[in-house]
Design a protein around this nucleic acid. Structure first.
Lengths: 341, 341
DNA sequence: ACGCAAAATGCAAGCGCTTGCATTTGGGCT
DNA sequence: AGCCCAAATGCAAGCGCTTGCATTTTGCGT
């Protein structure tokens, strides 16, 4: 059945156990369909040969891979780590395997990765954010691969989603900052192009300003890529604005960590000289000093629910409704009252 | 060839282009073997149908997947992130795809993941560290899947490796700390069981102590899992030792970040009251304050070279020699002179 | 003992692709 | 025009597994 020194196949096991390949297959996939005595014989043959099923062949024959793909914008910081971890744990407990790849926030790469995951037989795909070429939806529909969007809730989007309201969360946080008496505020955002989460957070920021009688056009906003150094650089620029901001709201915790770092390097005390806030509440938020006031996102819950929903979609028992989760503000030392001038 | 509303196959493309499946296949994999006119016809059929090759079928027929698997102990912190990123970039540029999974530092899980990756047709596998059940080597040999060990160099190990000398690096760092006049030092290590890197770092620490006239048995060492909170907890314990350590060396930067955090919370100034060092030089080392004195590891270089070596192994052109890389100490503010008492 | 339905197992047809080998085609020469 | 060889293409056999259907075995009731 197979040459010397090659991996053993189902056929090898079957021959050794004196049964047909069908029986071996059933023994492995649905043991109760095989009588005890036979099963034992087969299992010990499997053991003796060190047999491992060939995944490609399984996928091909069964037309299902029990594999879910996820494409996240970046693995370089921990923004998605906790949620993804929970996602994967839940998938695992349901018998699915997770394949992850990162798109570096590039729509071209994301498109490529989607094709790759589909080609690899992913039964379903998890995507981040709603914004992408509609052709992708057609492609996924044509290939019969369900997809779910996470980290961003929207009820009217082409793909079902699970997440929270980025705009409202940032609105609330901005209000909280203004409540501390800050009049001159600024924002360091992630790159908003192709990133609905970043854009919605900007909108929330501006809307809160408007609602509190500030002119949103007058508030400086710098877009920056999501790493600590860029956050630091953006802070440097922002802090020279006139009037100098007394509070800088950041699009996520990584940017905020960069801002704090730079502020400290410049001899500014946080929050006495300048308040800084983050978004996401990743571990980093508690490590920097002072610890970050930030928006807590229920990462693990989101991951678990995402797994639930996507599996339901794959198995054809999906209700079709998107799911919105709540966020809340965590106050830590990086936000203080505006200094009286 | 294929039913309505199902993904198009090679056969569909062939029919549409009026050629055989063989020609389509060659067109896609080795275009120069097909004459221009035909190629164009085929390509536009591919385009029109939105055809994507079925990966499982390709693997099955070609018996090669152009996929490399990597199993790392954890994705939860950034220890392996940079190296893995470089590894993946290099693989990508050579036409290979990377599949990553994490073992949570559990040998059982690692074993399982190895089988999974092999079953998925990985052409080669990257592992971290040398310590594992020898049966795994047999299994890999039997399945004809080459494996390379990274993050730990050893010339006499069963598997070829690329990495650095963890023992020597920690030895040097410890000497450096002692040079600063510290007499009472302690270490927070990762869990050494099943982790040769952690164990070698402990050895280096103890050897340096011995070489400097200290009794290594007298130096407190706490093993702790690799996260910030555990590092903080370990620091709490350590700092109550008698005599109180004036310098705490940590097995990696994450532990050191936890130690700094706790020290600060306890009102201890780093480095005036206590010096703290890390290992790995990940981004976190520069974010914490004070920034960490640590061992710089050439992550990106290691990743790139690992890709080189593993591809060579897969393609059968491997020299067989392991590769050792150099590390060096980065001095930042977290290490200061011992206080004169 | 015998007959029968149910349980257990076997048969064999694919799944979509690659590739060695056979066949056809196309040019360049004579 | 007629040949010949190389280039282009087609044929068809797998790759290792799952699964619908057919066949055999088992266990019971009578």
């Amino acid at each position: 059945m197979s040459k010397l020194n090659a991996a053993p196949t189902l056929g090898d096991v079957a021959k050794k156990a004196g049964v047909s390949t069908a029986t071996v297959s059933r023994c492995l996939n649905d043991p109760k369909r095989v009588v005890e005595a036979t099963r034992e014989r087969v299992m010990s043959a499997v053991e003796a040969l060190g047999y491992t099923p060939n995944f490609a062949a399984q996928v091909m024959a069964a037309k299902r891979s029990l594999t879910i793909g996820a494409i996240i914008p970046t693995m370089e910081n921990a923004i998605f780590a906790r949620g993804l971890q929970a996602f994967q744990e839940e998938l695992h407990s349901r018998g699915y395997t997770l394949l992850v790849s990162s798109s570096a926030y590039d729509p071209k790469i994301e498109k490529e990765q989607i094709r790759t995951l589909v080609a690899r037989g992913a039964d379903g795909i998890l995507l981040i954010g709603h914004e992408r070429d509609p052709a992708i939806h057609d492609y996924l529909a044509r290939q019969n691969v369900p997809a779910l969007v996470a980290w961003s809730y929207r009820s009217d989007a082409p793909l079902p989603s699970i997440g929270f309201d980025n705009r409202a969360a940032m609105f609330d946080l901005t209000c909280k900052v203004l409540d501390h008496g800050h009049k001159s505020i600024a924002m360091i955002s992630g790159i908003s192009s192709g990133n609905d989460r970043a854009r919605e957070r900007i909108e929330g920021f501006q809307a809160a300003a408007t609602a509190n009688g500030l002119d949103p056009q007058a508030l400086p906003i710098i877009e920056s890529s999501y790493d600590i150094e860029s956050g630091a650089a953006a802070f440097s620029k922002l802090i020279t604005s006139t009037p100098r901001p007394s509070a800088v709201l950041c699009g996520n915790d990584v940017l905020a960590a960069g801002a704090i770092k730079r502020a400290t390097e410049m001899g500014l005390h946080v929050p006495n000289d300048v308040s800084i806030t983050g978004f996401d509440d990743i571990e980093l938020a508690r490590v920097v000093s002072p610890a970050l006031t930030t928006v807590h996102v229920p990462h693990r819950k989101m991951g678990r629910r995402a797994a639930d929903m996507l599996i339901a979609m794959v198995e054809g028992s999906f209700s079709g409704t998107s799911k919105q989760l709540e966020t809340h503000i965590i106050e830590r030392a990086s936000l203080g009252p505006a200094r009286v001038t």
